[in-house]
Computed example of a mutant assay.
Amino acid sequence: MDSTDLAFFSAVAVAGGIGRAASELNTVQSNVTSHIRALEMKLGVRLFYRSKKGVVLTSVGNTLLPYATRIADLLTEARKAVTEAGPRGDLRIGSMETTAALRLPPILRSYAAQYPDVDIKIETGPTSALIDLVLARKLDGAFVCGPLVHEDIVSIPILEEELVLVTPPSVQTRLQLKKYLSQTAGRKVIVFRAGCSYRRRIQELLAQHGTVDIRWMEMGTLDGIIGCVAASLGISLLPRAVIKSFAEAGQVRGHALRGESGKAMTVFIHRRDAFVSSALQCFMERALQLSLSPGSETASLRKASKA
Rank of each mutant, 00 (worst) to 15 (best):
S300I: 11
Q172P: 00
L57R: 06
I235R: 00
K179L: 00
C145P: 00
G16S: 10
K179H: 01
L64S: 05
M265C: 02
E248Q: 15
L237G: 04
M96P: 01
L75H: 06
T173F: 04
G227C: 05
A7M: 05
I158N: 04
T98S: 14
F192Y: 15
L292Y: 02
L6D: 00
R302N: 04
T173H: 07
Y180D: 00
I158E: 04
R109L: 11
S236G: 08
L104D: 03
E77N: 06
I18W: 14
R50P: 01
I190P: 12
A304E: 09
L290D: 11
R50W: 06
R20G: 10
I269W: 06
L102W: 13
E297C: 10
P106H: 06
G54C: 07
K263V: 04
L181N: 02
A15H: 10
I120H: 02
T167G: 05
A185Q: 09
K42V: 09
K52C: 05
T184D: 01
R193S: 12
T124H: 03
K306C: 01
S110Q: 10
K178N: 13
L57I: 03
F143P: 03
G89V: 05
G259V: 00
W216P: 03
L135N: 14
Q281S: 12
G61M: 06
M219T: 12
I93N: 08
E77F: 15
L148T: 05
S305V: 01
A249E: 15
W216Y: 15
L292F: 11
A299E: 03
L43V: 08
L91I: 08
A78W: 12
S291W: 07
R201N: 10
P105S: 04
K306H: 05
L64H: 10
A101H: 13
D223E: 15
H35Y: 12
A15C: 10
